[in-house]
């Protein structure tokens, strides 16, 4: 019985950590414990949340995607330029759709190069990342303000002037991913490929297609994150997303997504997002220097990897101990 509790704790370690963080911050951080601050934490986590969804999907197939860091800026840049400069008065709704399509196309390019031409995912997504960031700098030399309300709506609207719509969308996004992973063929295939690509291929999964689709989803989620970010800031800068891809890695891994692929669930990912959000929030409230906050996040990534390593070992040890105990009691398994 006790073993099961231990395993539960290990499998949901991120929520335990979150709980501890909240309690500690509740005691030491002024103004932390308030409804408004919690909403704030969620609101500030939205962009990273979507990037974590994007990254996690790729990680679960045993790949990864560095290019989301620039897709988040590049795809919206095209859409916004279309609305504001190229065709003034262009429908913001259509523009949103086009942004998502561009995200999907970036993913399609990454995915098909990686799955069909067997290009190394690191080199592929790294180069695409640099290319897209460069193009974004070129296209958006200075920030663009004055965006149509109907475009910034998704990122800025607050239900009853309190709860940001974006937070609700993020929570629904995590729910949807959880559903896809546990109840659809595609979700199972994603995890199967990460678990053992060769065995999945032989078991009749069209591994190349599934991998390509995950990259496309990753691109779509990243460009959607861009739309939300622009909506929140009411402006578009060429710096959107910079440095966030590594945070996305950290959040995914802390949320229980294995870097080796095959393991992960959306609930854990949400935990990862919130832990990062709480730390960011509390350090800022405590008045810690912004550069130090950045360093603290780096430390977090390190801890996340440590956690990922020790978790599997710890898990195995607990199971082994349980078996030994059963043996010593003479229970035959």
């Amino acid at each position: 019985m006790f073993t099961n509790v231990k395993l539960k704790v290990i499998d949901n370690l991120i929520w335990v950590i979150l709980l501890i963080l909240i309690i500690v911050n509740g005691i030491i951080t002024p103004r932390f414990f308030s409804g408004a601050n919690f909403i704030n934490i969620f609101y500030h986590s939205v962009v990273l949340g979507f990037l974590i969804m994007a990254e996690s999907l790729c990680l679960m197939t045993g790949n990864f995607d560095l290019s989301i860091e620039s897709s988040i800026a590049f795809a919206p840049a095209i859409g916004v330029l279309l609305m504001t400069q190229w065709i003034p008065g262009f429908n913001p709704f259509l523009s949103t759709i086009i942004i998502l399509i561009i995200g999907a196309l970036i993913g399609l390019f990454n995915g098909s190069m990686i799955s069909y031409l067997k290009v190394n995912p690191f080199l592929q997504t790294l180069s695409v990342n640099i290319i897209l960031r460069g193009l974004t700098y070129k296209l958006i030399p200075m920030s663009i303000f004055k965006l149509p309300k109907s475009f910034t709506f998704l990122g800025s609207y607050k239900i009853f002037d309190v709860i940001p719509l974006a937070v609700i969308i993020m929570l629904l996004g995590f729910l949807l991913i959880q559903f896809v992973l546990s109840y659809t063929k595609f979700g199972r295939n994603v995890l199967a490929i990460g678990g053992n690509e060769r065995a999945s291929f032989i078991s009749g999964i069209d591994t190349r297609k599934v991998k390509t689709i995950t990259f496309m989803l990753s691109g779509i989620l990243a460009s959607f994150a861009g739309i939300l970010a622009i909506g929140r800031q009411m402006s578009l800068t060429n710096k959107i997303g910079e440095g966030l891809v590594f945070m996305a890695f950290a959040g995914s891994v802390m949320g229980g997504v294995s870097l080796d692929g095959g393991v992960g669930n959306a609930l854990g990912m949400l935990g990862g997002v919130l832990v990062l959000g709480v730390i960011d929030n509390s350090l800022t409230l405590l008045g810690v220097d912004a550069f130090l906050v950045y360093a603290a996040k780096g430390l977090l990534i390190f801890l996340a990897i440590l956690l990922d390593n020790s978790k599997t070992n710890l898990r195995e040890k607990i199971i082994l101990d349980e078996e030994k105990r059963k043996l010593s009691l003479g229970i035959n398994n």
Binding site: K185, R188, L191, A192, G194, G195, N196, R198, A199, S200, I202, S203, G204, I205, S258, G262, V263
Partner: peptide
Amino acid sequence: EKEGIIDVFSVKKNLNLVQFD
């Protein structure tokens, strides 16, 4: 090990990998 099973999956998920439909 290499081509047959997905070792991070449960027995159930391995058994039902092909017959999802």
